[in-house]
Write a protein that binds this DNA or RNA. Sequence first.
DNA 1: GGGTGTGATACATAGAATCTATCGATTTGA
DNA 2: TCAAATCGATAGATTCTATGTATCACACCC
Lengths: 298, 298
Amino acid sequence: MNDLKLKDLRYLVAVADERHFGRAAALCFVSQPTLSAQLKKLEQTLGVQLIERAPNNVTLTSAGQEIVARARRILEASDEVVTLARSHRDPLAGRLRVALLPTIGPYLLPRVAPALRKALPRLELRLYEYQTAPLLEKLQAGQLDVGILALPVEAPGCDARELYNEPFTVALPKHHALAARKTLRVADLKGETLLLLEDGHCLRDQALEICSRVGTKDSQDFRATSLETLRHMVATGAGVTLLPQLASRGAWGNARGVAVRPFASPAPARHIGALWRKSTARRSAIEAVCRVIMEHAL
Amino acid sequence: MNDLKLKDLRYLVAVADERHFGRAAALCFVSQPTLSAQLKKLEQTLGVQLIERAPNNVTLTSAGQEIVARARRILEASDEVVTLARSHRDPLAGRLRVALLPTIGPYLLPRVAPALRKALPRLELRLYEYQTAPLLEKLQAGQLDVGILALPVEAPGCDARELYNEPFTVALPKHHALAARKTLRVADLKGETLLLLEDGHCLRDQALEICSRVGTKDSQDFRATSLETLRHMVATGAGVTLLPQLASRGAWGNARGVAVRPFASPAPARHIGALWRKSTARRSAIEAVCRVIMEHAL
DNA sequence: GGGTGTGATACATAGAATCTATCGATTTGA
DNA sequence: TCAAATCGATAGATTCTATGTATCACACCC
């Protein structure tokens, strides 16, 4: 077994610098006998004499010199480790990898990003977009720190926290009959053609579940890859769709040919929350991020 | 105090490799609780969480990853130290720095170098030429391992050993009256012009001392920087000189215009010996070198 | 809901590092 | 030349600390 001790290397380097056991010991904050004994032991484990001990003349052997040179590098690197660790001590600093669903990211981020930057200036946010399944995978593999997605979700080893409750709205072609109404009910969608995202988006499943009770027509051959695509489809009059409230502002709200109508209370909604590994080391940073999102989401 | 332990870094790297405390512990030949406790302590001294501990899912934090990367380098370097030490274990291997007087080196080395190479093949001899004073200085400073010089010599902290006894001979211009004699006595040099080396060469002092009793003329304005220069001066008939026996072979023996004659017994002589620090780590190598020189010098 | 896998905890112990006191060798200075 | 000073090594006691065994606590899985 390589039983080297960093401390012993420190002692050796001190002797190399001072050429004097007493002063070297003082430099290391230990007594001279301690340093003396430890260095002797070091020589024993290495099987080589490192120091020539002569009264009034302490010198390194050639082996000692070569080893001291390496020891200096090692000690330098070990100090670097300590420095590095210190720089990681601030829990609200460093990189935090956050993934959001594609149906959340583009609509939530513009609302919260400035507040996040202001509240957590030392936090370097890395933002990703993944659908639920790959998000969970990467989260559990440690490639992400937090996921922002629709709850509930099956994720062993993870803790979740609800951030906000997002009502669905209905997006209709502008000249659709229902566009005349201020609010809608789910039952009003009976018989409508429901446009949906492609497989993998949980929004698709949620919309399907909400509408399955009332009976809508499924547009079998069409699967949008994003809400933007979906918007264009609605504008062409191909059908209607369910839209999360946050998405219904911005581009959707101003889009030609599309009308967005809220549901009458109680509106169907999805629960957006944050998910993280129970074992995460970034809990406090995550909680801080959650607080900011909760304050600025709606 | 930077209380890092190499062993702890080993534990950390093992966990990074195995992503499993039990297997990592086995890899380090310790029990799992030991590794667990030590890593927790490491995290405490660094002030950072390095590992995310989840059942069936051990991961490194980003701090952990960065530190593991450095730890690998540190451990590699520490293994290098051990290897390096092992290579120094063979006492008859490695570098041995030997300095010889300028009046010894060029004449002794041709006689002993082949034998040294054969007897101590793993010893890498570094040869230097210094006059007595700088030789002692560098020897005591640890820049040399052995000095080969004329004894006795004042050198605190050093041990000496006589290697051989070198009689002086007389070098004369070929047509000098004394060149007709087979052997000479010191008294025969009375009145001769004695050519000498420059200050600093102990040979100069020895020659002066030997001849001071009989009264020779000193060539005040001439100081040879080497025996070779001296030889040319003798050949021109400028005077005579004392020559160590080993030097009187080779170039001197065959030189035109120069005659070399031995002293009649008891010939004045100088004692050539080896000098080393009492504290040297290379005693056995030095002794081996001394033995070879004693066998092959004369 | 018990079985299994896995890391943490409790506690005892052996070994290591450290301290104080002192020795022994060597150099220095009157 | 002898006494004082310097300096590293040694002895013995003590305090830490790394380690092992036994056990717990928790989560996951069938």
